Computed example of a mutant assay.
Amino acid sequence: MSSNSAGPLAGQVALITGSESGIGRETARVFGRLGAAVVLNGLQAERLEHTRQALAAEGYQVAACVADVTDFAACERLVATAIDSFGRLDVLVTNASISQRAYFADMQPEVFRQVLDSNVYGSVYPLKAALPHLLQSQGSVTFISSISALNGMPSGSAYCAGKAALANLAHTLRLELADSGVHFGVVHIGFTQNDADKRVLNAAGRPVPIAHRPPRWQKSQAEVAAIIVRHVRQRRRRTVISALGRLILVVHSLLPRVGDWVVLLSQRRLRNFYE
């Protein structure tokens, strides 16, 4: 049982995709700390089980399911795990995705599709499987996007396109399901400290380390997770993490040419930031 059965989220069930590691794992930990039961998801069975055991040892109610979120049948099994384990579903956080480190002109078409599918169908399929239960609970859906979706980013074409699509998807769903009581929100994550073994895809589809990010620009995974959970609890439509993200949003909205000039300048002077 949860170590905080009287917490503010006691009785609720949260499913977080891509939660075997990184931000997803820490988001699951925050939900558990607040009393929710959590359902973990990932592709690596050993790592997923390690995370499940770690959270269970902390006293949280936790279940886990190995599932590829770009496979609808697998997503149906994932949602079934939540219902079979805890009897309901209140929160869906679609965090699982693949990123890239490759310029569009160099990318193999199948790599572009793989990255795009992970970011779009990796949110659409879990939601389609979960929606009947979320309608019943009048629950919450949060798509994890990126600040790079606000203005684009060189060497991130498929990733940026997929993350931008999630914002429009959330807006459309708010309109279609306005009377349902279900919350649809988007969190645009900024630069975050990554697990040491985190990898993204290069132009040929091979896993490579993520491009350099100055440590002073990065938030910890725990900080980001806390913001995500606060976003869910407040049922916010959009949360942009970091001052840089909010600056990008303002400049892109009001002075888009200035924003593009800054990005192009940084691309010339800080190539390791993109490559």
Rank of each mutant, 00 (worst) to 15 (best):
P126Y: 00
A149F: 00
P8E: 15
R238M: 07
A164T: 08
D117M: 06
V66M: 00
D117W: 01
A164D: 03
W217R: 09
S253M: 09
F86G: 06
L92F: 11
M153D: 01
L255T: 10
L249G: 02
I144K: 01
T192C: 12
G259M: 14
N95Q: 12
F184I: 00
R238C: 02
K163G: 04
P8T: 14
C160I: 01
E46A: 15
Q267P: 06
D117E: 12
A158P: 07
A158F: 05
L247Y: 04
P126C: 07
R246Q: 15
T94S: 14
A74S: 14
L15N: 05
E20D: 15
M107Q: 13
F273I: 02
G42Y: 01
R25G: 08
I189E: 04
H133L: 04
I23V: 15
T17E: 07
P109F: 12
N151Q: 11
L89Q: 01
Q138T: 06
R257V: 04
S2R: 11
Y121G: 02
R29K: 15
R271F: 13
R257Y: 09
E110H: 14
M107N: 00
S3K: 15
R230E: 15
L247N: 07
G18T: 05
S242V: 01
S253K: 11
R206W: 00
G139F: 02
I23A: 06
R29L: 13
T239Y: 10
V38I: 15
L254I: 11
A45R: 15
G122K: 05
Q138D: 00
V208P: 05
A54V: 07
